[in-house]
Simulated assay, not measured.
Amino acid sequence: MPQHTQDSKTQDSPPNAESLHLRFTQALHSLADKALDSKPKIIAILGSSGSGKTALAHSVALQKGCEIFSLDSLGIYKGFDIASAKPTILEKTQVCYHALDVLSPSEKSNAMLFFTLLCECILQLKPNTPLLIVGGSSFFLKSIIEGLSPMPNLQGYEGWLESLGELKEQYAFLHSIDTYYANKIAPQDTYRIHKALSLYKATQLKPSEYFATHKPTPFPLHIEIFALDKPRDELRADILKRSQKMIEQGIVEETKEVLESYGEGILPLNAIGPKECVAFLQGKITSLQSLQQELFFHTCQLAKRQATFNRTQFPKISLLSKHDLQKELDKLLSI
């Protein structure tokens, strides 16, 4: 069933650091109210990179009149169409997609943004329209289901963080003010260390104290969770084809354009795909054949981590073959 292309709606507008928390709070409260009188059917289709979950979801959405929420940490950025395997222009005229092309490459993504976008997406769904949550960044889904603590604005503390020294010294400072919380974070985890220190600076509370007094609010609606399970050899063969196709489609040229516009210090260039292309453009990878091998190898590693995460972090997940998943989705969406 063809659907409209997504316009520039409020839920997919770029977030302002000062307003994201307000948007998050408002959307969550509105969704909690909606949960009392209307419970839209929400189904998550997870799976490793290259498993075919996106194509499957598009086919199901087309047949059953679903909309799709993209759970992709790279797809949320503009400029990475090939690297994140975004739906084509034609596919976006057939099915309404959400959470794509929300951020410029220089902006930062986080779980609260995905949580907010998902709430806002569900709030504007037409009656009886199912939503498919599809993507490989399932750690965001785990955060959404378990809930997030309300957060103050953590922007503006970059200078203070730099004054503490390099990452090693920053981690040591965090350890000195909150040993319990620091022990939960890897010393190399730049994002979480900076977030914890900025939270301390903003609130004058230890991160462990802040989270103890600001409990997360769980997602108020039920999400049925599936993962597309594919035999290892078959998945590796598909990843190899995917790596070849991306190079043929122009992932190197796409990455070069972003690199020239924003510089190499931006977060999405650390993702698998863009990261290897940057190395190729800098001469660290010397041939397209070697680039393809690197893309294949690192994507296989990522796929293994994704499969392990999905299997161990969601207690009520169903791991199904493509055939069995199609049958299950058909049954669920026919009720």
Rank of each mutant, 00 (worst) to 15 (best):
M1F: 09
P2N: 08
T10S: 12
Q11G: 07
A17K: 10
T25S: 13
Q26L: 09
A27R: 08
A32L: 02
A32V: 06
A35Q: 13
A44W: 01
I45H: 06
S48Q: 09
S49V: 03
S51E: 11
H58R: 14
K64L: 11
E67H: 14
E67R: 09
F69T: 12
S70Q: 11
L74R: 10
K78D: 03
F80E: 10
A85S: 15
K86I: 00
T88R: 10
T93H: 14
V102G: 12
V102F: 08
K108G: 03
T116W: 04
C119V: 00
P127G: 01
T129I: 13
L148P: 00
N153V: 06
G156A: 10
G156S: 06
E162V: 00
L164D: 02
G165L: 00
F173P: 00
L174Q: 01
Y181F: 15
A182I: 01
K184W: 00
A186K: 11
P187E: 01
L197C: 04
L197G: 01
S198M: 05
Y200C: 04
P207M: 01
H222N: 11
E224C: 05
R232G: 09
D233F: 10
D238I: 00
S243P: 02
K245N: 14
I247Y: 03
V252T: 05
T255C: 10
L259Q: 06
G263Q: 12
G263W: 03
E264R: 12
G265H: 08
L267G: 06
P268F: 08
A271N: 15
P274F: 10
G283N: 09
I285S: 06
Q289L: 08
F296H: 11
F296Q: 09
H298N: 14
F314C: 02
K316I: 01
L320S: 04
K322F: 05
Q326G: 07
I335V: 09
